[in-house]
Amino acid sequence: MNTQYQTGATQVTATLAGYNFGFLDEQTKRMLRRAILKAVAIPGYQVPFGSREMPLPYGWGTGGMQVTAAVIGAKDVLKVIDQGADDTTNAVSIRRFFVRMTNVATTEKTREATLIQTRHRVPETPLSEGQILVYQVPIPEPLRWLEPRETETRKMHALSEYGVMHVKLYEDIAQHGHISTAYDYPVLVNGRYLMRCSPIPKFDTPKLHMNAALQLFGAGREKRIYAVPPYTEVKPLDFEDHPFEIERWPEDCALCGAHDSFLDEVILDDKGGRMFVCSDTDYCGERREAGHTGRMSAPYKDEAAE
């Protein structure tokens, strides 16, 4: 059932009877949009919102889904990724959910998507203007493990008292010899707010900087929305003598030969055999289609025939 409030819809789309376009009712979507607008206006600032119950548990992407539901229109092309892959459980079920609730077109191609909901990765293919990237955030507060009191962390944000975050990085170096924080790396947005960029590997952190796309972050359980508008400065915290560095791998992708993408290590046997493959399945597939090969790749045609 679609109502006359529906925005951007050109034709009446056939979604499940009894449900509004995008699952949430229009008042809720307006509330979410107000929070998103505020978040865009104050980059990196966590805007509280009235998080709704979604038909899946907290921690599975309820925050990201509410943000997606608030911004999705009938003409959008949706891509959902989980750990870089389009075909994992979380990605498949969230994509299916939005197809049933909005009937929008979906894609696995980063370039074709207008709206991308992601968990734990930023696509390797650079995003362009007009695209929206929605992150699922478990814990939005970067200072949470350093200061348990919410009243205090808000005060620290208000007064830009971020020294304690460096204490954590100092501790990393003291214990491990290098900054060992590998994911959810703390960043300073627009020179003002300290932000958690959700549990993406620190490999992806530089991609947030001056990105052409609008990046929205939704935390359902913690009831916070924050945003990085297009072309916003995002600076990872570091020390002068221990600058921010991203991960490196001993090998290239075994399937497509990429040396510039985030690689997953796959154990092959119990004799120490292993391979490294792109975590971004779309990126890897695109490269293989273009004829790139890696150490262990069969010719692309053969693989498709299997």
């Binding site: 008292e161 304690v164 460096h166 954590k168 501790e171 570091d238």
Partner: peptide, 27 residues
């Protein structure tokens, strides 16, 4: 004190809060 951080981090905290971002000198 911050009981979950090492002695060095405890001493360095106020300096880091004031913008000292050089690990070597902090140490």
């Amino acid at each position: 004190l911050r009981m979950t951080f090492s002695a060095g981090a405890n001493i360095g905290e106020r300096l880091m809060a004031l913008g000292d971002k050089h690990y070597g000198t902090l140490r």
